[in-house]
Each structure stands twice: as structure tokens, then as C-alpha cells.
């Protein structure tokens, strides 16, 4: 891929990733955040987090499809960090609006309400990933350790999806589509490993 194409694609990715945030900021200033503004903010940031986690998880299987897609890896950190960005905004929405900065109330919530516990866990699992996202960290940790650490994204995505299921009312199936995508992306890993092993065997 030509450098200029890569720059253009990166710019496009940035714009796409910033779009939900820009929508919220614009809506806050122009009073266009829908009928229940708090809910709009919580839902937009939560959904963006999950979508970006899925996109991040899609990079590896996609680029294995063809050597010509190898450039995709250069976008993984961007999407992953934006997932953390929206996850953090989502958490701040909870802290500032739902919990009204009431620390005791939040402790009770996290202890008592499993959907909040699960959301909190998902965010905490993303923290070390965001913290070690620099090239320096990869060098420092060594590729192998870094890879191992970053497998936490699987746990974060699963916790995030359970958080979504536990938030909607019993019997509501809205998170189903995303769950199927996540399941496919997670299953793609052992399948890819198996295909790779088989290929190696045939070569040998």
C-alpha cells in the first residue's frame, strides 16, 4: 500500500472514530441530544466502545485472509485506543450523571449490581492495554509478553457484551447481532490457529 493511501485511510479512520464524540459535543451545545439526553450519552458512548472493540478484534482475522491485507495491522492500535476513549467517556457518564459523583453510592452499585460490576470489569481490563499501547512498551515487554498481556481484550469484549445483555430488559434481544459478531471473531482465533498448523504440516 502506498504511503499516501495509508495517510488518507488513517485520516478517514480518525474522522469515523471521532464522529460519535463530535455528535455528542455538537448535540450538547445545540440541545440536540434527543429526548432523554443522559440516556443518549450513555448509549452512544457504550455502543461506540463495543463496536470499536469488535473492529479491533476483526483486524487480525481479516489480515490473515490475504497477505495483501497486511497493512490492516497499522490500524489496530488506533481502534483499540478509541475503544478505550469511549469506554472512559461511558464510565464518566455513569460517575457524573447516573451516580452524581456519590462515591458511596458507586461502591454500593459496583458491589450489588452485576451489570455495573461487569461494565467496570470491562473498563479495568482495558486500562493495561491502553497503558501499554506504545511501541516503547512493546519493546520493553518483549513481543511475546506484550501479546500475552493483550489477550485481555478478549476478556474485556466478553465482559462488555455481558454488561450490555444485563443492561437491557429481560427478553429484549437488541444485543444479539453484536454478540454473534463477537462469537464469530472469537471463534476465528482457534480456527486460524488450526488452519495454520495444518498448512505447516503439509509443508513439512
Amino acid at each position: 500500500m502506498k504511503h499516501s493511501h495509508l495517510i488518507a485511510l488513517k485520516t478517514a479512520a480518525w474522522i469515523a472514530c471521532l464522529y460519535p464524540f463530535a455528535y455528542l459535543v455538537w448535540g450538547a451545545f445545540t440541545n440536540h441530544l434527543g429526548i432523554d439526553q443522559t440516556a443518549t450519552i450513555a448509549f452512544t458512548t457504550g455502543l461506540a466502545t463495543l463496536r470499536l472493540l469488535l473492529i479491533t478484534l476483526a483486524i487480525s482475522p481479516l489480515r490473515r485472509l490475504s497477505p495483501r491485507l497486511a497493512w490492516l495491522i497499522q490500524f489496530r492500535r488506533l481502534f483499540g485506543l478509541f475503544a478505550f476513549f469511549y469506554g472512559t467517556l461511558h464510565l464518566l457518564t455513569y460517575v457524573g450523571l447516573y451516580a452524581n459523583f456519590d462515591v458511596h453510592g458507586m461502591i454500593v452499585d459496583i458491589e450489588k449490581r452485576r451489570f455495573i460490576t461487569m461494565g467496570m470489569a470491562a473498563w479495568l481490563l482495558m486500562v493495561p492495554l491502553a497503558a501499554t499501547s506504545t511501541s516503547w512498551s512493546i519493546r520493553k515487554l518483549g513481543g511475546r509478553n506484550w501479546n500475552r498481556l493483550h489477550m485481555l481484550i478478549y476478556a474485556a469484549a466478553v465482559c462488555g457484551m455481558i454488561h450490555y445483555w444485563w443492561q437491557v430488559k429481560t427478553g429484549v434481544l437488541t444485543p444479539l447481532h453484536m454478540t454473534i459478531v463477537l462469537a464469530a471473531l472469537l471463534l476465528a482465533r482457534p480456527v486460524m490457529a488450526w488452519l495454520k498448523r495444518r498448512k505447516e504440516r503439509t509443508v513439512a
Partner: peptide
Amino acid sequence: VDHPRWSQKRERRVGLPFYEQW
């Protein structure tokens, strides 16, 4: 009496800006 998944102590009046809703 809380809902198992959230507190019922406060509520959001719809149609207001988010910082005035609660």
C-alpha cells in the same frame, strides 16, 4: 426500594439538558 440493576432514588425528567435532568 432499588431496582436490582439501578437505584430508584433519582430520576431523569426527559426533554431537559442532561445537566438539568436529574
